[in-house]
Design a protein around this nucleic acid. Structure first.
Lengths: 195, 195
DNA sequence: TTTGATTTTGAGCGACTGTTCAAGTTAAAA
DNA sequence: TTTTAACTTGAACAGTCGCTCAAAATCAAA
């Protein structure tokens, strides 16, 4: 019966995600998106409902991608902290120049949607909370491992990590600071272990 | 000869600054601004040239205000670190509900203007660098005071402060985390002293 | 009081926004 | 091969955007 869709939803979302991540929601026009994903407005709207719908799916995909990336680094690292460290280094240093922004797309979203009662603001809160819960799981493991003491609870470690990571990524969202990245990441993980 | 301006430039910039800080540059329309500052488009454009011009002046004013605030806390504190701590507490805890955003307007700007060759992006870089230089001055004093050791240089302390402060403000830009603010600020200043 | 430089006003311009939908295209089912 | 439901296309809509400028209002100087 009938026709088949001609686009691959995953690819479209990923491309849209990059554009939204780079320019933000408001500064990205639907015509920018049409060109980037090579679809006409009718197709986009029948697939995603609205610009907001596409952004929503893009942001969700972003967090899935981020978790997948972390899982990757964890599985090829000896320790949990080692894996997290490789992830941080990858984000802050190695992919700096090919990434749409040094700043986490979730943080950008949380910063952009200041009006407290919008769908996208609530979505960004939800996904952020989910990510904190995910980090808390990881740090629970690290405590049980003996990689970390228990002067802090797992969720406190997770909060500390988020603050450090967000702060670092914000700091490195500017030119000519590359040489400080490695020492500051060293410092970050030294602090986590010494807490 | 002729007419006098009827608005107070300082007040207009301050009001515009609050609106831009809350909603961001792209999500703030010139009509929003007209209503907020109670001026007709012609007056705004003859005074500030463009939306970008008004934003530019607003962002500059924001950083002046921030430095003024720090100076205030420093002058009524026994130690330099005590003053900085009072400033951080004021921003993260006390003025949380009356501030347009928990996130620093400079950080929001740096996040919003990702396209590297725009005036506003460069302005945000400039002002951020100026602020780091200002913090470096303060930490130089703190080292000379003996409040801090010299395991880190002044500019390294300044970078650490920026990362912590930015990270904290990002973290507290969400509801239901108030109870963690004080312990996390304690942790931040404990770390600065122990570095 | 008159003059005239300066400021304020607001209707409105052209461009752009997110979105719609009738017409055209496609390919599985009959 | 014909039918038909699903998908794609892109012109176009109504609304908003940043901004302009001729006309009205203002007030110090003459």
């Amino acid at each position: 019966m009938a026709n088949k869709v001609k686009f691959e939803r995953e690819n479209v979302v990923r491309v849209a995600s990059q554009l939204f991540w780079q320019k933000g929601f408001h500064a990205t026009s639907t015509r920018d998106l049409q060109e980037a994903v090579n679809m006409r407005p009718g197709s986009i709207y029948s697939a995603f409902g609205s610009k907001e719908g596409l952004y929503s799916e893009s942001l969700k995909d972003y967090t899935v991608q981020m978790k997948t990336q972390i899982e990757g680094f964890l599985s090829s690292a000896d320790t949990l902290l080692g894996g997290l460290r490789a992830f941080v280094e990858n984000v802050v240093i190695k992919t700096k120049d090919c990434s749409p922004s040094a700043i986490c797309m979730l943080v950008k979203a949380n910063s952009e949607f200041a009006e407290k009662d919008t769908n996208l603001y609530e979505l960004s809160l939800d996904l952020t909370a989910q990510f904190e819960a995910y980090l808390t799981q990881l740090f629970t493991q690290a405590i049980n491992n003996g990689e970390l003491g228990n002067t802090l609870t797992a969720v406190e470690y997770a909060r500390f990590f988020q603050v450090q990571f967000t702060g670092l990524r914000g700091y490195f969202n500017r030119p000519n600071v590359e040489q400080f990245a490695e020492p500051m990441i060293n410092q970050m993980f030294m602090l986590i272990k010494k807490l």
